[in-house]
Design a protein around this nucleic acid. Sequence first.
DNA 1: GGCCCGGTTTACAACGCTGTAACGACTTTC
DNA 2: GAAAGTCGTTACAGCGTTGTAAACCGGGCC
Lengths: 338, 338
Amino acid sequence: MRARLKDVAERAGVSIKTVSNVVNGHPHVSAVTRARVEAAIAELSYRPNLSARNLRSGRSGVVALAVPDLDNPYFAELATHVISAADRRGWTVLVDQTQGDPGKERLVVGGIRSHLIDGLLFSPLALTHRDLAGREDHTPMVLLGERVGRRAPYDHVGIDNVAAARAATLHLAERGRRRIAALGAQRAPSAATARLRLKGYRQALAACGLAADPSLIAHAPAWHRTGGAEAMAALLGPDAPDAVFCFNDALALGALRTLLSRGYRVPEDVMVMGFDDIEDGRFATPSLSTVSPGKALIAESAVSLLADRLAGATGEPREVRVPHRLTPRGSSPYGEFP
Amino acid sequence: MRARLKDVAERAGVSIKTVSNVVNGHPHVSAVTRARVEAAIAELSYRPNLSARNLRSGRSGVVALAVPDLDNPYFAELATHVISAADRRGWTVLVDQTQGDPGKERLVVGGIRSHLIDGLLFSPLALTHRDLAGREDHTPMVLLGERVGRRAPYDHVGIDNVAAARAATLHLAERGRRRIAALGAQRAPSAATARLRLKGYRQALAACGLAADPSLIAHAPAWHRTGGAEAMAALLGPDAPDAVFCFNDALALGALRTLLSRGYRVPEDVMVMGFDDIEDGRFATPSLSTVSPGKALIAESAVSLLADRLAGATGEPREVRVPHRLTPRGSSPYGEFP
DNA sequence: GGCCCGGTTTACAACGCTGTAACGACTTTC
DNA sequence: GAAAGTCGTTACAGCGTTGTAAACCGGGCC
């Protein structure tokens, strides 16, 4: 059987509480006693029982990260950063996959694991502010990605999607492209990110005096490669675009594949721009231009906001805007084309 | 404050234990009482305190999954399957990233979270059987990937790497290639997977009567895209290979990039074969031929083995070999080339 | 009517830990 | 030399839950 405080105490010839004090690094323990206790701890290879500690203290040292899907490289990369940031604070991360399913998302915010976790980092996909408004669980929560409703009383970390999408579109226009398509529009009421990126795209067109041709807007119900490949196919034809701004990198990689397999040259015939800066894009051929959202900083900010709440901060919900960066690569290069 | 059993009991006018019985679905609770208790539970939106339950029962319902890095698409995809498989059994998954660091790996198997988790699924990278042999923690553990040492007393799930590598190499030889390179060899004593795949490669060459040219074996200290790109560059030159078997898909995608950017045609000049069947490979141009290791089945088997141990199974360590499949795609197609 | 039996409900203790308060021994201060 | 403080250590209670064992209650049987 595993050793308990009691066993260590008996072995060291002190009281249980003294062992507890040593374990927790309390002051007012004499050097001699401390040494004896530490020896006993080592001999029995004692480890604190976290369940008991949690029960007593109400804290578990575990935070949950709920994302749609770790298959998605963006979330996988975000998760590594969150785990690192949490680790730096001595926390462990428990990962929930919601699959973007409203039911599962509701379970997560409803506190399905509430007694196990101290806080929740949640990247919602399907839930609207309505769902969050009625939240009964009181575990601190920080929202990642798009803000869900203007009034949701939760800390939020995200980027300025409108500005980023505008910059990405302008980047294509600056390279002389006139028929710039947008790929990844969505109709669902919860698709806030898609709406904002489309808005930025339209602002950029307007700023350049380019007409907003509705046939250049391609919808994609899900933002993965297959959807990008299909949506790109729908854009091609007699009036094919000369550039396409995809609302994320997965869509862009799918689009790239369709373009190349149909004999289009990238970037010469069609420039491609993504969003997210996932590792794969860097190694595509040609390498994928993209918007880099600073994932490490997003993760760090989110964990930091949560840390404040766990430390008892009660003020107004805070809004963190993490800066983004345009990262031009081979699919939209500077310079001349033949 | 959050409701406890006691609060529900008072509201329903019964004892604490009766509420506990209802919550746990015990028999011998009258329909009337059950209904009253359930109403009270709903009104107070009671949720069991998992810490207390764990303390009492010694079970947490949490299993840990320790992988080198979620950034790596192979592990990200594996993680999604593990999380799903665990979810089906009502378990939650806590993810640890070891970064392939021996120190962190040792912490994980040493039981750093032992009181928090019921079991451990561990995909070792750096640890050898020596490290595992002295394991003191008694949390059930199942090893994923390469077997660490022949005698480690742990259940293990993996694929037949030698056979898979042999099949992949033969596949290239069958398409008429004679100078087939291997990319991803490693010298570290812990690099069991690399050794086995190299062995399969050599067996295939021998079976075809092809000479084993040492200059065709490229080393890569880490199996990511950058390493693949660099190793591929080292293989090129006057005696460039006409096919390359990469020990995983990330290496292959890096190699692909080097080949294309240097003007080689794939598959005409050089065929490329990967290993792992990650999503990215499917969307590369050309799409990447690979070995599919059945990740869903690996995850399911591992969770199932762990479930048996948690249920008290004590027999000999079990060895599960999950079948693999050769998945030819554009980078090594059937048919003729100009 | 008393007794036993089965289903239903309950009191109690314990899981391992830590905050509180109090204790004893020793030092400092007037 | 007595009072006041300081330091190191301890006893105790309680966090919310569940297993155990015992109490309770009504119906069927002798």
